[in-house]
């Protein structure tokens, strides 16, 4: 070995003392430094989140009570609540899930199991990946043009849900495709080998195996939709509303918009309400994530 440092051949110092040589010591220190740097990088995120949470909880936790959850927005901070916004968010969430889930999963099944691997499929695939990166405000403009104006759905819950569905379609499609692709080909072959049709193979073997991944992806995408504000402003969600929606055509507001509305007011009392609103939104998001984990565990338990 040309230029090698140290003696060639078996070591004569007994072997285990090697860690004390300067070169090895430097190596170990570098390793330690790297671990510390990576640990610190992790802490940046965690600490920032902790400070934010602490701040919000300190301001808002006193405000969150039954009255807050069951009152409409009001000019008087002591009487204001999130009833309309919470109801609006839940409506939007449910409708978006109902619209986006079947369309996305169907698209993913088509792309993975049926589509020929040619340039058209690759082009569609590329576009879906790009759509996942389009800013949400652009979807808002699209929703305004297509749903509110062209289809005449007005500034309604259905317009908002359709817009958010478009927004999260590519995200769910990609997650579902990955889950479907992760199903081993040997399972498909086994199924075809027993005389199953493509549809039987997909519906009875591939989809059940991919379902935990698909559900996790869907719920994470819905979490994103619940936090969206910009596209809903575009399609006409209202900041101040004193009724809960009773149908698809009703006007609506959502939690992030209510929070934004409160925080943009000068009075400190409204800022406290905003903090309380954030807590409600966080609780909604965390329970959705919990649901994702429970669903995944449920499906995985059935599998084994």
């Amino acid at each position: 070995m040309p230029g090698a440092e140290g003696p060639v051949g078996p070591r004569t110092d007994g072997g285990l003392g090697g860690g004390q040589r300067p070169r090895d010591r430097r190596r170990h220190i570098l390793g330690d430094v790297f671990a510390v740097v990576c640990g610190a990088a992790t802490l940046v995120g965690v600490v920032a989140l902790a400070i934010l949470l602490f701040d919000v909880v300190r301001d808002g936790v006193g405000q969150v009570d039954l009255a807050f959850l069951t009152s409409f927005a009001s000019r008087f901070p002591e009487r204001a609540g999130v009833k309309a916004a919470l109801a609006g968010s839940v409506w939007i969430l449910g409708l978006t899930a109902l619209i986006a889930f079947p369309i996305s999963v169907s698209a993913a099944i088509y792309l993975e199991e049926y589509a020929a691997q040619n340039w058209i499929t690759r082009l569609i695939q590329l576009n879906i990946a790009n759509l996942a990166g389009v800013p949400s405000i652009v979807y808002g403009i699209l929703g305004l043009t297509v749903f509110v104006r062209a289809l005449g759905l007005e500034r309604s819950i259905i317009s908002g849900a359709l817009t958010l569905s478009l927004l999260i379609l590519p995200v769910i499609i990609i997650a579902a495709q990955e889950a479907i692709r992760a199903v081993p080909d040997s399972i498909r072959q086994a199924s075809y080998g027993l005389g199953a049709t493509r549809w039987q193979t997909v519906s009875r073997q591939v989809l059940p195996m991919a379902m935990p991944g698909i559900l996790t992806g869907t719920i994470l995408a819905l979490s994103r939709a619940v936090g969206e504000t910009a596209p809903l402003i575009m399609v006409g969600a209202v900041g101040f509303i004193a009724f809960t929606p009773s149908g698809l055509g009703d006007q609506f507001t959502v939690l992030p918009l209510q929070i934004f509305n409160w925080i943009s007011r000068p009075q400190d009392e409204f800022h406290v309400l905003a903090a309380a609103g954030i807590l409600v939104l966080l609780a909604l998001l965390l329970s959705m994530n919990a649901a994702a984990i429970l669903l995944r565990n449920h499906y995985q338990k059935n599998r084994n």
């Binding site: 081993p184 040997s186 399972i187 072959q189 086994a190 080998g193 195996m209 599998r303 084994n304």
Partner: peptide, 9 residues
């Protein structure tokens, strides 16, 4: 098949 490929059932 070459490798045993039972369904996850």
């Amino acid at each position: 098949f070459q490798k045993p490929n039972p369904f996850p059932k």
